[in-house]
Simulated scan of single mutants.
Amino acid sequence: MMWPSIALLAFVTAQRLGELVLARRNTAALLARGAREVAPEHYPLMVALHAGWIVGLWLLAAGRPVELFWFALFMGLQALRLWVLATLKGRWTTRIIILPGAPLVRSGPYRLLRHPNYVIVIGEIAALPLAFGLPLYGVVFSLLNACVLLIRVKAENAALESAMILK
Rank of each mutant, 00 (worst) to 15 (best):
A86D: 14
I97L: 08
C147F: 14
N157K: 05
A159I: 02
R95Y: 10
W92D: 07
E67Y: 15
W58Y: 04
L17K: 10
I120V: 14
I54P: 00
V21Y: 12
M1A: 14
A48V: 08
A126E: 07
V47H: 06
I98Y: 05
L166Y: 14
L85I: 13
A14H: 10
L130C: 03
L128W: 11
V105N: 03
A146F: 02
L9I: 04
E41N: 14
I165P: 01
L144Q: 01
M2S: 13
A126P: 11
L104W: 05
L160V: 02
T94W: 12
L82E: 15
L49Q: 01
I54Q: 00
G108F: 00
L112R: 14
P65G: 07
L130H: 08
I122L: 15
A7P: 00
R36Q: 10
R152M: 03
A86F: 13
P129F: 04
G56W: 10
G52A: 09
T13H: 05
L17W: 12
L60D: 12
G123Y: 11
E161A: 15
V139I: 13
N117R: 04
L160A: 02
P44K: 01
A14R: 11
S107K: 08
L73Y: 11
L160K: 03
R114Q: 15
L134T: 06
A86L: 15
G138P: 06
V153H: 08
S142F: 05
I98T: 02
S142A: 09
A61V: 07
V55P: 04
V153M: 10
H50P: 01
R114S: 15
T27E: 07
E37S: 08
A28V: 03
P109Q: 07
L8K: 07
L77Q: 04
R36G: 09
W53C: 05
V47A: 04
R33F: 11
T27W: 02
K154G: 14
G90N: 13
A39Q: 12
L112Y: 15
F11Y: 14
R64P: 12
S5R: 01
L112I: 11
V139Y: 07
L45W: 00
S5N: 03
R114D: 13
G52T: 06
T87Q: 09
L85K: 09
A126Q: 10
F132L: 02
L22F: 01
L20W: 10
